[in-house]
Design a protein around this nucleic acid. Structure first.
Lengths: 111, 111
DNA sequence: CGGTATCCGCTTTGATACTG
DNA sequence: CAGTATCAAAGCGGATACCG
């Protein structure tokens, strides 16, 4: 989310879902409501800092809903909004593409 | 293209198409063959350095074909491979999503 | 025309420690 | 459990200058 104007829809979408983690978080939430710790365990390699940072951004974008249950121990649940679900659906073909070509992609030499 | 293993297809796809420019370049190439200068003019705000850098990466990924015509003045044409075209197709729903929600996205407060 | 090379700042990400 | 704070490292991307 860096720009204020976009040259096309794909430009806008990449800006929203861009970065290392957002698409993964979106995907992890597609099955339903998830607690903070569940998300952390579900997304390999993400730190607490990055997870909360990305979730907060996605909350301001209106993609994610954050529900705090005031109790001890604390319980915070994250879920997709309708907007988030619509984005997730738009990502399905891309996910399928990645699935189909994953072995090819992994075989590409890096540097 | 930073990882060597992926947790899911979406993870892999985002790694390939991630960054500020690749999706845009892909999209610009969807109409057919393009010369270097055409691409530069077609993608608003990109520098020569970033364009060539991204094109080279996409070439090593096998998404883009680079054809050099040895003549004066030089002429280099870029086009999508079948692999690149398949990725582009997978990006269409995302582009449509962005198109539909562009005004909403632009209205999201930054910072 | 179609690049390369170098430098540099800003943002993103990671590591570690701490808290209500 | 669900964060916050701080610092440091890495990487992305821009500006400028130059070349075959």
């Amino acid at each position: 989310m860096k720009k204020r104007t976009y040259s096309c829809g794909l430009d806008a979408a990449v800006d929203v879902v861009g970065g290392k983690w957002k698409a993964l978080i979106l995907w992890e939430l597609h099955t339903g409501v998830r607690r903070f710790a569940e998300l952390r365990r579900g997304i390999d390699g993400i730190s607490e800092k990055m997870l909360i940072q990305q979730l907060r951004e996605m909350e301001t974008y209106g993609l994610v809903h954050r529900e705090v249950h005031r109790q001890v121990p604390p319980k915070v649940e994250y879920s997709l909004t309708d907007f988030g679900r619509s984005l997730n659906e738009a990502l399905i073909p891309l996910g399928d593409w990645g699935e189909r070509h994953m072995s090819t992609i992994e075989a590409i030499p890096r540097d």
